[in-house]
């Protein structure tokens, strides 16, 4: 059991990392990574939605008719996203404005649908929940890595604290969209070079 849990996390975070291995969910990975704090909030929201929708899908898996399962999954995911949206609006209004429509777009984030479809649909609730958490953490890991570089180069700061002093010139380019594309491209390159691919891929989404 312990080994199984370890494997789930290892796969979710590195070998089957949803962002750079399966190229899923990169819309938001690009959009919110100009500041570390935004990426952090977005990742927490995503971990919450992925884990709980995997859990719910898994609990309902024996009661969902096959041809309706996409619809059911979408509704479950939307319900959790609404919770995230309302909580953000109520307690962190500034963060809610900063993330804008990207909170709602968690619904169409393919990572969640992918995990529901590839894993939760055929597994028991607890492993599904952990699988959701692991994929979410894998996503967070990539987001934070991109945001770290973009915020550092673009603003010379770390979580909003200026660390580079007076002489630093901001790379405005890094805050703009092209910077995001280049960062993710380079990250995928590094990941493909240094993290060995698995022998056989099991149940990749899509």
């Amino acid at each position: 059991m312990i080994k199984g849990v370890g494997n789930i996390f290892k796969n979710g975070m590195f070998q089957d990392n949803p962002v750079f291995r399966q190229i899923l969910g990169i819309c938001s990975a690009l959009a919110v990574t100009n500041l570390l704090i935004n990426s952090f909030a977005m990742s927490l929201g995503l971990i919450f939605v992925t884990s709980f929708s995997s859990l719910t899908v898994s609990l309902l898996r024996n009661h969902t008719p096959g041809h309706l399962r996409m619809m059911v999954q979408t509704l479950i995911i939307s319900a959790y996203v609404i919770i995230v949206d309302i909580v953000l609006k109520a307690y962190f209004p500034a963060m809610s404005t900063a993330l804008g429509p990207y909170v709602g777009l968690i619904i169409t984030n393919c990572i969640i649908m992918g995990r529901c479809e590839a894993y939760a649909q055929n597994n028991k609730p607890l492993p599904s929940f952990l699988d959701g958490v692991a994929s979410g953490i894998g996503y967070m890991f990539v987001l934070m890595a991109i945001a770290l570089f973009r915020e550092f180069l673009g603003f010379g700061s770390f979580f909003g604290f200026a660390i580079m002093g007076e002489g630093w010139t901001n790379w405005v380019f890094m805050i703009m969209p092209p910077g995001a594309f280049f960062m993710l491209g380079i990250l995928i390159w590094v990941a493909n070079t240094y993290i060995p691919a698995k022998e056989e891929t099991k149940g990749g989404a899509q």
């Binding site: 703009m176 969209p177 092209p178 594309f181 491209g185 380079i186 995928i188 493909n192």
Partner: peptide
């Protein structure tokens, strides 16, 4: 380069296109 094939190079190209559109 090998690691850059597929998604990697596509993202870099997209970055260049985004730069042009700016």
């Amino acid at each position: 380069p090998k690691g850059l094939q597929g998604a990697g190079i596509t993202l870099i190209i997209t970055g260049l296109m985004a730069l042009a559109f700016i």
